[in-house]
Design a protein around this nucleic acid. Sequence first.
DNA 1: TTGTACGCGTTATCAG
DNA 2: CTGATAACGCGTACAA
Lengths: 379, 379
Amino acid sequence: MSRTKGAVSIRDVAAAAGVSVATVSRVLSPASAAVPMRKETRGKVERAIEELGYRPNDLARALLQNRTAAIGLVVPDISNPYYPPLVRGVEDVASSHGYRVVLCNTDRDPDKLTGYLDTLIKTRVDGIVVAGGGWTDAPDRTAVLGTYRTGLVAVGRHLTAHPSVRIDNVAASRSAAGHLIGLGHRRLTFLGGPESSTTVQDRAQGFRDALTASALDGLAPAVRFGSFTEESGYALARDVLGSSRPPTALLCANDRIALGAYAAAADTAHRIPGDVSVVGFDDTPIARYVRPTLTTVSIPTYEMGSAAVRLLLAQLAGEDAPAVETMPTRLVLRDSSAAPAAGRAHDVLSLTSSSSSEREVRCASRWRAAGRVACSWLR
Amino acid sequence: MSRTKGAVSIRDVAAAAGVSVATVSRVLSPASAAVPMRKETRGKVERAIEELGYRPNDLARALLQNRTAAIGLVVPDISNPYYPPLVRGVEDVASSHGYRVVLCNTDRDPDKLTGYLDTLIKTRVDGIVVAGGGWTDAPDRTAVLGTYRTGLVAVGRHLTAHPSVRIDNVAASRSAAGHLIGLGHRRLTFLGGPESSTTVQDRAQGFRDALTASALDGLAPAVRFGSFTEESGYALARDVLGSSRPPTALLCANDRIALGAYAAAADTAHRIPGDVSVVGFDDTPIARYVRPTLTTVSIPTYEMGSAAVRLLLAQLAGEDAPAVETMPTRLVLRDSSAAPAAGRAHDVLSLTSSSSSEREVRCASRWRAAGRVACSWLR
DNA sequence: TTGTACGCGTTATCAG
DNA sequence: CTGATAACGCGTACAA
């Protein structure tokens, strides 16, 4: 019996088996099979381990080996539907490599970030994945990491010197706007989130690029900012749709904003997509369930999470990994975007649909893919 | 300089400050202020800590104190929209008490559960929160915990001897069915998930109870089982709605099943709620966004997560906590449930709406609550 | 007021 | 083939 807690230690096992702790350690060692050892001895030890319910103390192991097999995962808020798949991606590849994941929610609060970073360093995690940042002062905050050789990979754009996994927000937005322009829309408005967000800036830029490329930028250089919420989307859309010459298409910085726009359209008697087309960003699960279903840019969040961990592990292994890995997005066409009604599509220009490196896909139902019964409206 | 990694240890600080390690330890000790110490010495130490970017090694500390300040959180799948709020609830109160959270996704696979439990014990977490189980053989699997005095709190029903946080599924389901019966429905069908799930069993039971209480059980004792997916809900609903005398109301074991039912209704030309009312379970975010908005039973998942941690911490502190804490659910009335159309409500009986301990609320928009502009269809 | 020495549970090294 | 022992980084009696 050990003295502290009820915990059984390697010494208890050694005593029970009538051998030394070194022998027990050898049985447990990963190189166990290779090590020559009398079968009988091994048996005694294994029996003792079994009977006592012994579980090696990874703390002691980590202390000695300078490696905890733990990684920290920092997200703004797991309740935001955008993050669960990313978290799952992280956890899946982490656990498949024997790493465990410590989850931290920052609410985008710099102080919380600092606090969590500190905690993670004190517990000596081997590495950290920081998602959804846009921490303008990140360099300062991550400076300590070097001292403890803690790996770091960012997901999304960060002003750090660390490797990162990203998407090309400019191109994705350009593609989405191009889709609308290709449908014949001439008056478009971008409904953004916080102007300080680099993500929003990039998406706004892609929007402007598409207009410029189609020589539409003079007509309606409408870019509005707000926050990443339904409320904000509602307010912006309501304002815009209530103007004397409302746009026929809205490109929204995320799906939540788009949902707000849906509500504003309903309240101002605009039909979607008859009177106004709406396109979102993120392809949140909800996008498939709202009516009309929402055309939106799908972001491979699960893959970004798993890629981040792979990058991190490579970094920890000393391999030289790419500094930035860009993942592909795709525009998922659903029912909220269509050609503008005849009477509304003035300002017509002749143009070809903007070329794009993104794939535009007509999204096939998973049910159909699985060969199940067809189902009309779920896509 | 320390030998391993780049890590700076307490010895490095001591050397830099020209004091002993004990002195440095004293500065860092929580009882630091109480301990008498020359101001100058303390200053030297603090400066050294600052300059070296020293962070105490919590592994060593934990090894010594037999307490890791970590808890494990086991969920079936964080990607399931039901869990993020629960996880957030756990993380919030854990972190506010200085604990960190290790996240584990089991996919309801008993082997994964066992594996994670093992990992958590090896890393000597102080306690574990297991959510969404229904592990029929959980007792065996958690037996080891006793050896290491690892706390455990279950969320949802588990066949273990551990404390748990629950909801009263029977009562909640009875209440939901009562709502439909109160509206005048006489032919109701319960669309369940896996029959092996205790949650499903309870919800089915509450459904039957309500019918029995209204003497309707002879008319349509329709209880169907399947899985917790849209596909299953679609298949069951399609089958049921295609029968010669279809039900006028469907009570679904969760929102995903309800969404499948929506699709089936659309494909069989049944209008919701005109031809058939649909009620779900869980109040997933999607419930507010589908058309018609979905009447459903709201479950306080965030609160269940935070309550679980409070229970766990009490348990760790040796306080005697309640063995089972039951949290209140509420039926959120939206647009998918209404009185049956006149021609369809035969089999009429006179009855009062079933009394219920649950609150039925007409859900007020957060927007309105916040005093923002009214918005017609988002609720 | 500060320093020394031991132990926490392991693993690695080196004898035997 | 197996056992004794020195670390790993820290907290804490106890000594100075």
